[in-house]
Design a protein around this nucleic acid. Structure first.
Lengths: 228, 228
DNA sequence: ACGATGCTTCGGTTAAGATCGAAGTATGAA
DNA sequence: TTCATACTTCGATCTTAACCGAAGCATCGT
């Protein structure tokens, strides 16, 4: 015993339902205030405050003061990535919530995974990009091809700018609902931003689901045809 | 709230120190009895029994009766993979144990990560394989080259047999001590087995560390030279 | 300056669950 | 059959921490 990193600590941090709900709410990618997170966790602000202090002490969250509000976000990208991987693990093991609820279908169709598109549409997009040779998939790794770089430029994505960032361009992220990979990394983020900016899709206020407009959906499906 | 998989459940399962220690002990790859796991967790057998029942109900562990013993192992490969990823996450966040203990250096040098080699030597091996063009690394993905396939056959690894298995041949696994990738997948497993069978190395009884013999170490270092 | 809002800290209650002793079940050995 | 070993179940205790009311800071608007 007494070997290696202390996984019990982070396990305990995630293991409380209220904290888990607050973390899940942050998967939407938006910075949220303590009050908003309290609502997400179904608890009072006092209780939320102590939870948030613990999450911050555990380096899972960071806060940014702005006026009398305190905005909480993940301490860094790896937290969101890690949480999504837990969700995949949990879903694969049948650890689903008791009541699926009416929102589930929308979540499965398209949702925000911290900063990129996940769900059925996210998986479809990556599959389609691979099928047309825009992205090479080797094992779990993804690489943008020259061909793909040109295609994305045509859509209006400045691949060159993305490449200069420290963050990896393409990363695969395991989808809890589809149990297949979707596109993460700075390119995945850029694509989602693009959809939101052009009005093809919008995020909902209280949920992580992404709603496509009729026109946006048509364009999206045409741009990323089903594979086979 | 009430969205998606229930991450709180598995968080809680991992969040108890006794359970975390038992799970960590199983990272050694060997099936362990309830009594052994109780010792690893620092608790009595009664308590361990209830913990093990919970872990089994949560589909993290599976048990195999054999005479009057009950051997516990991970329910499947994904559990070990997942736990190592938590360790990487925890280590990156400074969640290390309070007292490093005397075993730590050995653990950092070479240890078993469920079924393959991790630690300094594990990272060195993968780096070396990539440097000589035996393995292609694209993003987080790894692929064995034709060149590499021939080299491994020379060492005595039946790559063809490995390819026929359902499990991916090469996978990268993030190392909590080195914070870099090492080789997992069926190839990683085969390489470790090879080292153990040829007597280059042996596993210790109570720890996850892997001890190289003087001769084995010489051979290993020659076979996988440091990159730069 | 004053009140309103957002959040944190303190104190006391309560509920969950980790723990172990003791008793019960199953398997193996003598 | 009888005893020993391996493990589980039961029952009771006890620690931990989640929770909220109340009070205390800090910041903004007026």
């Amino acid at each position: 015993m007494n070997e290696g990193p202390d996984i019990a600590q982070i396990g305990a941090l995630i293991g409380d339902p209220a904290r888990a709900n607050m973390l899940t709410a942050l998967m939407g990618g938006k910075a949220l205030t303590a009050t908003e997170l309290a609502a997400a966790g179904g608890i009072t602000v006092q209780t939320a405050s102590t939870h948030l202090a613990k999450l911050e002490a555990g380096n899972l969250l960071a806060q940014r003061k702005q006026g009398r509000h305190r905005y909480f976000t993940f301490a860094d990208d790896s937290v969101g990535k890690f949480l999504e991987s837990i969700m995949g693990f949990a879903a694969g093991r049948g650890h689903l919530r008791h009541k699926p609820g009416p929102k589930e279908p929308a979540l499965r169709k398209a949702r925000i995974c911290y900063d990129h598109l996940a769900g059925d549409y996210g998986v479809r997009m990556l599959d389609s990009l691979i099928a047309r040779g825009a992205i090479d998939a080797i094992g779990e790794g993804l690489a943008l091809t020259e061909n793909g770089e040109n295609e994305l430029k045509r859509i209006g994505i400045d691949v060159h700018a993305l490449k200069s960032s420290r963050r990896p361009l393409c990363r695969s992220c395991l989808d809890w609902s589809e149990r297949r990979a979707h596109l993460a990394g700075s390119l995945g983020k850029a694509l989602l931003s693009n959809f939101l900016e052009t009005g093809w899709a919008r995020r909902t206020a209280e949920s992580r689901s992404v709603i496509f407009s009729p026109e946006g959906e048509r364009q999206f499906l045409a741009l990323f045809p089903a594979t086979k």
